[in-house]
Design a protein around this nucleic acid. Structure first.
Lengths: 210, 210
DNA sequence: CAAGAAATACCGCAAACGCGGTATTTACTC
DNA sequence: GAGTAAATACCGCGTTTGCGGTATTTCTTG
């Protein structure tokens, strides 16, 4: 029996979700709240459900803050977000805050029940239209295979440089003379077109050369 | 009418997908290939479908390379990946390469058809179990508001340090004595618990202190 | 106002770095 | 087998850093 709570400010919607969930024989909605604050108070008493169905765009404390607080009180609780918004930034923040599912409000009753079951089974239900946004955020992290023509040895040394080792420490670590390490670093500098370790480390991390 | 191609190395599976798609009255599978190379050759002639259903884990050219090549020939083609793997790294690479959907091979026929329709409608169908991995990659970008108690001045200097300026350059830029800059850096070091610029820059970038 | 935090400034010295060289050995390619 | 790229090693010198101090001024806050 999957235990659920619903947080939703529209009374009719709240009632609709409550009834939908309780109509399924494998799940039960114990409480429905009109805002995050009430749910947090109830969580504080030690009770907690398996899954919380959360409407984003609530009055008072916003949904994303709510997720953060609820996850800090009851980290095991899985939060499925329901939204009318398809704003990339909101989605990104919600995911970072720890939401596990993200479905559109116009989803059908079957989709909602399915999403709950998928969540219970360890999955992350995400509406296709939301997923587009999620993937588009991802593609920004696309790595433009810019090796700058670094050789294997240079990459190895770059790794150690990023970890903050000095030339001498590196030379001992990879059994080279400190002079050789210096030469490699000189070459890395000229390939990356930088003139200091800080710049190099910054470039390596920003462009995922590590 | 949604035009599809299928790329799948198992003959029975290939045939099954082919028939499944053609059994739906709103879509049509024109070609089915056993490998990416053949599909790429056909793409090169100028023909292309709306959507390609691609099996990942193909012989010869691997699926991810395949996506990259196909997207370069026909950028408008939407690629849905089918996989048995749930490997985060593979998923990440496929998304970066430009795949738009990601569904598990054990998905039901209805789910597959639904995924195709969602893709055509501009969505990104992602199986709940795959989405878990996607979101877990995301949560790594979670910013743990860890200021380490840095003051505004220290943050300002940290910014400049990450950009690779020397103490003297910084002192000129913000109208301070080089000694003062040195003092601030000493303090930053002790707050971040690092002992070199490289370490500091790495920590600042990795933990989004910048 | 008194206390404390932050920002400012200065000193000195050992260690490390940045960069200009040169040169040999190894390995892969044509 | 000649040619090239990579990895290796060494030198020297001026600059920069890292870190141990101390100390004054400003700002905030109880």
């Amino acid at each position: 029996m999957i235990q659920l709570w619903v947080i939703e400010d529209h009374p009719e919607m709240r009632q609709a979700y409550y009834e939908l969930i309780n109509s399924a024989e494998d799940m039960r909605c114990a409480y429905s709240f009109s805002n995050c604050e009430d749910a947090i108070q109830e969580l504080s008493t030690g009770h907690h459900p398996d899954i919380i169905l959360l409407d984003i765009g609530l009055p008072g404390m916003n949904g994303i803050e709510g997720i953060t607080v609820m996850k800090s009180i009851a980290p095991m609780v899985k939060i499925i977000i329901q939204t009318v918004y398809e704003d990339s930034d909101k989605i990104f923040r919600a995911i970072c805050a720890g939401a596990i599912g993200y479905i559109l409000k116009q989803s059908s009753s079957e989709k909602i029940l399915e999403a709950i079951r998928e969540t219970e089974a360890g999955g992350s239900p995400i509406s296709a239209r939301i997923a587009v946004k999620v993937l588009s955020i991802f593609s920004k992290f696309h790595i433009p295979e810019n090796n700058y023509g670094l050789t294997a040895r240079e990459k190895e040394i770059l790794h150690l440089l990023v970890e903050g080792f000095t030339n001498v420490q590196i030379s001992k670590k990879i059994f080279l003379s400190p002079h050789t390490v210096g030469t490699h670093i000189k070459n890395i500098y000229s390939k990356l077109q930088v003139h200091s370790r800080s710049e190099m480390v910054a470039k390596a991390l920003k462009e995922n050369l590590i």
